[in-house]
Design a protein around this nucleic acid. Structure first.
Length: 476
RNA sequence: GGCGGCGUGGCCGAGUGGCUUAGGCAAGGGCCUGCAAAGCCCUGUACCCGGGUUCGAUUCCCGGCGCCGCCUCCA
């Protein structure tokens, strides 16, 4: 099966364009990663899922992918543009932990959350603090080329030296100035200018600071991404992903500094931005004072993979309505899909060769065509649903297709435990004994006892499924 | 104020100028079952409002109403 040529939406050109790799057969992806001063909410996970989807589709299409996701552990300011404290430092000050403790803890939490929603490990996962020298070097380069100026607060990028500055996001720089809504560092020449290196004020000692040609301080947020991306992927870069919120400031600034430093345009071939999760009335990031995270789902008995299924149900460039009920519904759909897949899988002993029937290959083609068309996961998922319960396809074709599809869907269908078939369900002895007891009761027509046992097992989280081959249980 | 997007059947959510039930969840009917559950089969004729273009628009254009996001750290 050959996957059709891949087309992706490029924010810069505002259009879906063919993916044309810089190096034949290879694809480099840079994804803006987490700032590790606290938990990553489910909206952040959508960002990870979108990048993971992209990476899986490219790999399925045969590209050798290098997926880079950075860890921001310094430089991300807590408040207005170029003002306020570093987020990590602020968190450390709040909890009394060391910076290392904070960043380690939240980095691990993030990695765990990614895994739980089925994201593959990035090939590279660089940390900003491991790239300080490179960041200083980039600022020096920009300085040598006349794109910077130094004020008491730090070294700033002079956007006036980059005529294309407003193009990427369609900015109106005069308006930006006129609205006066941007809190400014006093001496900045233009509101859009941004910090490349923040200087530590005299008499102050920061938890994280480094010497530089301009004095002690720490790097600006934007420059880290340019440096880590370049270190990992060189330039230009095939694809850079992130949330739509980054278009205006973060990515615009990354482009400015990178294109000036590298004398290159475009620095990034395709910019992909996902839309936000819409949580309606509730605060997106808050739920009873807590951030909406992967564990918020687990606490409600929702499989984190249900969130992956939920994510795939909507297109990444569309805002997606979030409620727990919707994710639960996705979980139900995922469970059913898995049951069908597993039944087909076990019927053919895991053989993925299929029969190559016309209908099967037709569906296979439609599935990959959907994904090749700017990652249309909802359409692809619909085809997977159709395949799972298609009456015309035999088990061999159903499993052949679903196993193939799962390279991108990422539900782990090949390893999913058999349920409801009476085989493979792992239960402890006590549960098995109760099940046998119920069978005895049923045989004796003592249905009151049988139903009582069923209720008790249900209370313990086991759902009884009676089949022609006898009863079995599964976690509910 | 500037920029971007959205309004599809109970809910979510694809999609298209006229074949075509997108798909999921929920709901109703049926089969199965000691009763359930699970599973399977069947069912719903949707496209914000008003104009326009067209042989024909949910899909194109204009206007209106409503909603959301970004512009400030932010996925």
């Amino acid at each position: 099966m050959t996957i059709p040529p891949i087309h992706l939406h490029d924010t810069r050109r505002r259009a879906v364009v063919p993916f044309e790799p810089i190096r034949e057969g290879r694809a480099g992806i840079y994804t803006c990663g987490p700032t590790v001063y606290g938990p990553q909410h489910l909206g952040n996970m959508r960002s990870q899922l979108m990048a993971d989807l992209l990476r899986r589709v490219l790999e399925a299409a045969g590209y050798e992918v290098t997926h880079v996701i950075n860890i921001t552990d310094v430089g991300h300011l807590v408040s207005d543009a170029d003002e306020g404290d570093d987020k990590v430092e602020a968190a450390a000050a709040r909890t009394g932990e060391t910076v290392a403790e904070i960043t380690e803890r939240w980095t691990e939490q993030w990695r765990s959350d990614r895994r739980r929603v089925g994201c593959l490990e990035p090939h590279l996962n660089p940390r900003a603090t491991d790239h300080i020298a490179g960041q200083i070097e980039m600022v020096r380069t920009l300085e040598a080329k006349g794109h910077t100026y130094v004020i008491d607060d730090g070294v700033y990028f002079d956007t006036a030296t980059f005529p294309r500055y407003a193009d990427f996001a369609g900015l109106n720089l005069d308006d930006l100035e006129a609205t006066g809504r941007v809190e400014n560092v006093a001496d900045k020449r233009h509101p859009a200018d941004f910090a490349l290196w923040k200087l530590t004020p005299p008499g102050v000692t920061r938890l994280q600071e480094w010497d530089s040609p301009w004095g002690r301080g720490f790097p600006g947020w934007h420059v880290e991404c340019s440096v880590m991306a370049d270190d990992a992927l060189g330039h230009p870069i095939d694809i850079h992903t992130g949330g739509v919120d980054h278009i205006r400031v973060h990515h615009t600034n990354e482009i400015a500094q990178s294109e000036c430093a590298f004398d290159l345009h475009p620095w990034v071939r395709i910019w992909m931005h996902h839309e936000f999760l819409d949580v309606g009335g509730e605060k997106v990031s808050k739920s009873k004072g807590h951030v909406l995270v992967v564990d918020s789902l687990v606490e409600r008995g929702i499989d984190p993979l249900a969130f992956r299924y939920f994510f795939l149900q909507a297109h990444y460039r569309q805002q997606q309505a979030f409620t727990f009920e919707l994710v639960e519904a996705a979980g139900t759909a995922l469970r059913r899909l898995t049951q069908h897949a597993v039944a087909a899988r076990d019927e053919v002993g895991g053989d993925v060769s299929g029969t190559g029937s016309a209908r099967a290959e037709q569906l296979r083609g439609e599935f990959w065509a959907a994904l090749a068309d700017d990652l249309n996961a909802p359409r692809a998922l619909a085809i997977a649903s159709t395949v799972a319960r298609d009456g015309e396809l035999g088990a061999a074709d159903r499993w052949s297709l679903l196993a193939d599809f799962d390279r991108v869907l990422g539900f782990g269908l090949a390893d999913a435990p058999a349920t409801g078939s009476g085989e493979g369900a792992v239960v402890d002895e006590r549960v098995a004994a109760r099940l046998a007891e119920r069978q005895e009761a049923r045989a004796a027509k003592d249905f009151a006892t049988a139903d009582r046992i069923r209720d008790e097992l249900a209370a313990d989280g086991w759902e009884i499924v009676d089949t022609p081959d006898g009863p079995t249980v599964r976690p509910r």
